[in-house]
Design a protein around this nucleic acid. Structure first.
Lengths: 228, 228
DNA sequence: GTCTATATGCGGATAGAC
DNA sequence: GTCTATCCGCATATAGAC
């Protein structure tokens, strides 16, 4: 508050480290990003990471929790509201999927470049094999999984457990891949689609909701004898 | 040919290294797997990797090409056949998706545990940020992308370029996530589905074809003004 | 809170004996 | 073709001055 005549910027070193870690983890993954790369990108000292966070894993924890916790809180709020509004019935498949997919995508708009970075990181987190990353990420995701799996089941009670299990995989896979690579140049080149110079979050959301709603709602045929 | 009285097994050191690298890359990713871990798992010497392959990146190239090239060849053969059979028309969406998804999944059956490993690795390759991995993987995938994007366009000519672009992302994301994590214990725990103790490739294929066909075929609504 | 300097270990890669 | 021994750089983490 009161101008303290601080010799340099203070306190925000921590935030600059968080921002740089977010970007570099998103670009190169956890194993592919050194603390040296992060601190030099942030204009901070290597030792500052350990002073403020304690370890590389704890830094990741802070980076993920900062933005993922609000996103997941919002997912659950939206689902709560849908279930209240549905009264005795259950929210529709489209509504539930919208509540799952809208919060991460609207962060791209709300946060600008940092949101775009984070969303890449969040997408990547879903496919990270590193056990440290999984130990940090999965607990942040568990409640959402539990609530939404239950909501999907109620939206289509005729689905079996196995079918629901696989379909949830597809939903998460489609989302995480889009978040990781949706804005990536290389993919546009591969698809030689000159279309999305910059990816419009609203367009991505509409496309993803449509795709996943149809997929989740489609019955899986029984396997009498599936030739191949 | 003629029994040469070889002191130890010869030649198959190379294969044992390939097998071990396949498994460890699949489990821990490229950056997360050291050459020392690979050679000690393979019962080989560290220097053998450089003798037989030249570098870690070249080893990955060999591991991927060994199994991915046949899979992608088969994808294109299946698509060729579908397009011949369709005569003047175009193969249906289900058929095209089947041709895309069936080859990797049937390798699980055909190769047993090694197939299960490789399929995890192939799934993971889709989300790897490491530029060395991408430099090796993307060229192996490019032809398939080109051919199948064209086939999807012909199956639904009314789809715009942008819509097709995103939908292809969802398709690849659903597939790669399933391949990476479909057999993983942690996911079953999170979903607390006691269902798939062992994942049945046929069941996964049916579920994925149903999901993706519905998703690819569903029209994406126009965005008049998508508030949220 | 921020810095320099350093401890300590693992990474990929290579030389050269056998 | 396979081994041992080693080069050399980068990784995380910490001690201690300022």
């Amino acid at each position: 508050m009161t101008a303290e005549a601080v010799p340099a910027r203070s306190g925000d070193t921590k935030d600059r480290i968080l921002d740089s870690a977010e970007k570099l983890f998103a670009d190169a993954g956890f194993d592919g990003t050194s603390l040296r790369a992060i601190t030099s990108h942030a204009g901070a000292n290597l030792a500052a990471v350990h002073y403020h966070f304690g370890s590389k894993e704890a830094l990741l924890q802070a980076v993920l929790a900062r933005r993922l916790a609000p996103i997941n809180r919002r997912r659950i709020e939206l689902l709560d509201r849908l279930e209240q509004d549905a009264g005795p019935g259950a929210p529709s498949m489209t509504q539930v999927i919208g509540a799952f997919l809208e919060p991460p995508l609207s962060e791209i708009r709300r946060l600008g470049p940092s949101g775009e970075q984070f969303v890449r990181l969040a997408g990547r987190a879903h496919s990270e094999p590193n056990p440290q990353v999984r130990a940090v990420f999965l607990p942040l995701f568990q409640d959402v999984v539990t609530r939404f799996v239950a909501a999907f089941r109620r939206a289509r009670p005729e689905m079996g457990d196995g079918e629901l299990h696989w379909k949830f995989h597809f939903l998460v896979g489609a989302m995480s891949h889009l978040l990781s690579w949706g804005g990536h140049q290389e993919c546009a080149v591969m698809l030689n689609s000159d279309a999305p110079a910059v990816a419009d979050p609203d367009e991505m959301l509409r496309a993803m909701v449509a795709f996943c709603t149809a997929g989740m709602s489609a019955p899986t045929p029984e396997g009498g004898r599936a030739g191949r």
